[in-house]
C-alpha cells in the first residue's frame, strides 16, 4: 500500500510536469518570434532616436561588444549608438546612447527598459531629463538639483536623485566602453 501510493505520487507529479513542459515548449515556440520582434523594434526606435540624422545603420562588433554605426545618405559616419545597462533604483536600467566620435560628445540618449517608480524615477524617460545629455562632451558628469550652470552638470529629476545619478553613471560607463572600443574616440 505504502509503496503503491508513493509510486502513484511520483507518477502524478511526473505526468503533470511532462505535460506542462510540452505545453510550454509550444507556447515558447509560438511567442518567441513576437518577443524578439518587439525587442528588435524597441532597439530600432531607440537607435533612430539617438542618431536622428542617420539614414543607414551598420551593426559592428568590437571588443566583443555590439555597436551601431550610423551613416547619412552620402555615406559619412554621423555617429555611433551603443546599448548599455546598469542598476537603477528598483532594478536594471537599459539605455541606448548615441555619440559623435569626431566631436567627442553625446548626441542623445534613450531609455529602453527600466523599473523605476512611476511619477518619480520613471521620469528619466522624459525629454526634460534626457535632454541634459544632448551635446555633452565625454567625461565625468556631476548630478545637481538645480538647472545646470556648468557644462558637465546634469540636472536630476525632482525627487529622484538616485535614479538620475544611476542613469548618469550608466551613461558614463557607456561612453568609456565606446572610447575603449574605438581607441579614445579617434
Amino acid at each position: 500500500m505504502e509503496k503503491n501510493s508513493t509510486k502513484a505520487m511520483i507518477i502524478t507529479l511526473a505526468t503533470i510536469g511532462i505535460i506542462s513542459a510540452i505545453l510550454l515548449t509550444f507556447v515558447y515556440q509560438w511567442t518567441i518570434p513576437y518577443i524578439e520582434a518587439n525587442q528588435e523594434e524597441t532597439r530600432r526606435i531607440a537607435i533612430n532616436e539617438v542618431l536622428p540624422t542617420a539614414e543607414e545603420i551598420n551593426q559592428v562588433e568590437r571588443e566583443s561588444q555590439i555597436f551601431y554605426e550610423g551613416y547619412d545618405s552620402s555615406g559619412n559616419r554621423v555617429g555611433m549608438a551603443y546599448q548599455h545597462s546598469g542598476g537603477g533604483y528598483n532594478g536594471p536600467i537599459e539605455l541606448m546612447i548615441g555619440v559623435d566620435l569626431e566631436a567627442e560628445e553625446i548626441i542623445r540618449i534613450s531609455i529602453l527598459n527600466h523599473q523605476e517608480t512611476p511619477g518619480l524615477g520613471a521620469r528619466i524617460t522624459e525629454e526634460e531629463y534626457k535632454s541634459n545629455f544632448a551635446g555633452k562632451p565625454f567625461g565625468d558628469y556631476e548630478v545637481v538639483k538645480t538647472p545646470p550652470s556648468k557644462t558637465m552638470e546634469v540636472q536630476a529629476v525632482a525627487g529622484a536623485t538616485i535614479s538620475s545619478a544611476n542613469t548618469t553613471r550608466i551613461v558614463e560607463e557607456a561612453v568609456s566602453m565606446i572610447n575603449n572600443a574605438y581607441g579614445g574616440g579617434s
Binding site: 510550454l24 507556447v27 515558447y28
Partner: peptide
C-alpha cells in the same frame, strides 16, 4: 530552457 524557469524554481 528559459520558459521552464518559473515551473522549475517553484519545484
Amino acid at each position: 530552457l528559459p520558459f521552464l524557469q518559473y515551473v522549475s524554481f517553484i519545484i
